[in-house]
């Protein structure tokens, strides 16, 4: 049952090449996924601004369009307004806790350093030990890193709060039961005559294609994330044959071989979306001309647009708030370790100081 603990051990050159390769891979994956997500956000934004698909579903003009009902259901299933209300309420407390831990840690250092400086000025050359100022430099650098990270988090909190405040009303409406949701949407003259028209059918098929593209994108994201390829053997072979590793050449070649197919499919997916969206915009103009435009219809359309945008914002808000909560909790653990280091070194310095004072008084 012997297991070789050192089975995975490799020469340092291999380890360094592997970590650079993994960084390249992570960058490639993150960039590709970010492009897809940005494209989906853009697509949702365009549809919301055109009040699609609600506009072409809106047969009666006084009932909730199907897509809005689905969006309402999706929001409610994720916990509705209570979820984001609670998460946004917790953020300031999480931030404050982290700040307090950091401030307290640095306070330990400040107090001991001040005492050390006083004794140095009092005993001068007889105060023979490394100044605390010198000793604490690395910890203070680490402390300022934490400060920077917290400042960035505060900026992120502000973005989330602004999005929450601007979208909360629409989200709250989406969370209502259907009857109340319907009451919250101004009614307007029905667009019944439009239903059979060619432009509505064109819009419906274009929207269906768009849904397909978004589904394909989700699949692509999963596929890209699930690819696994170990470069160790390739690097070991190169080291054995050539005595050195041309990491960049090997990595770029392998990344292209493993991910090239996916990035091409992603590019085709994004290009297809652009074509469809421009077709949708053309068809929508035609649809708008044919539709009776009156104040009630415009008001109704505005509310439907807000609700669609509210749904998209809700999905993003929940993700941002969960990310922020996890960030603060993870940071707290790191800060508690930092605090432990500060109090340990200060304790040691105090002990040393007391002994030095005793010696001085005796001498």
């Amino acid at each position: 049952k012997y297991t070789d603990l050192f089975e995975k051990m490799v020469p340092l050159a291999i380890q360094q090449s592997l970590s650079i390769y993994n960084q390249r891979k992570a960058d490639l994956i993150n960039q590709t996924i970010a492009r897809m997500r940005d494209s989906t956000t853009l697509c949702n934004g365009v549809l919301a601004s055109l009040n699609l698909p609600a506009a072409i579903e809106d047969v009666s003009g006084d009932s909730v369009p199907q897509s809005i009902l689905q969006k309402s259901k999706a929001v409610i299933e994720q916990g509705g307004i209570q979820t984001i209300d609670q998460l946004i309420r917790d953020l300031p407390e999480l931030l404050q806790r982290n700040k307090e831990i950091l401030d307290e840690s640095l306070k330990f250092l400040d107090e001991e350093e001040a005492t050390d400086n006083d004794l140095k000025s009092k005993f001068k050359e007889r105060w023979q030990r490394t100044p605390s100022t010198e000793l604490y430099k690395p910890l203070r650098t680490e402390g300022s890193n934490f400060r920077n990270v917290l400042d960035k988090a505060i900026t992120a909190d502000a973005v989330v709060k602004e999005r929450y405040q601007s979208q909360r009303e629409a989200i709250a409406i989406l969370c209502k039961p259907e009857a109340e949701l319907n009451a919250a949407i101004p009614s307007a003259n029905p667009a019944k005559t439009m239903q059979g028209s060619e432009v509505v059918n064109t819009l419906k098929s274009l929207l269906a294609q768009l849904d397909e593209i978004k589904k394909e994108r989700e699949q692509l994201e999963n596929d890209i994330k699930s690819v696994n390829f170990d470069m160790t053997t390739k690097f070991l072979t190169a080291l054995a044959q050539d005595g050195a590793i041309n990491e960049e050449a090997l990595s770029v070649t392998e990344l292209d071989r493993v991910y090239g197919g996916y990035t091409d499919r992603v590019q085709r997916n994004l290009t297809k979306q652009e074509e469809i969206i421009s077709n949708i915009q053309v068809s929508h103009q035609e649809f708008s001309k044919m539709k009776q435009s009156n104040s009630e219809a415009n008001l109704r359309e505005e509310v439907l647009k807000k609700l669609a945008a509210g749904h998209d914002s809700y999905i993003e808000l929940v993700a941002n708030l969960r990310e922020g909560t996890k960030f603060y909790n993870d940071l707290t653990e790191i800060l508690l370790k930092f605090q432990g280091k500060c109090s340990d070194i200060v304790f040691a310095r105090k002990t040393e100081r007391d002994e030095l004072l005793k010696d001085l008084q005796q001498s």
């Binding site: 690395p138 960035k152 988090a153 992120a156 973005v159 940071l331």
Partner: peptide
């Protein structure tokens, strides 16, 4: 992502 990464802080720790 909206929030800063904590990886650098963890790496600091490993290096120290």
């Amino acid at each position: 992502s909206l929030y800063p990464s904590l990886e650098d802080l963890k790496v600091d720790k490993v290096i120290q």
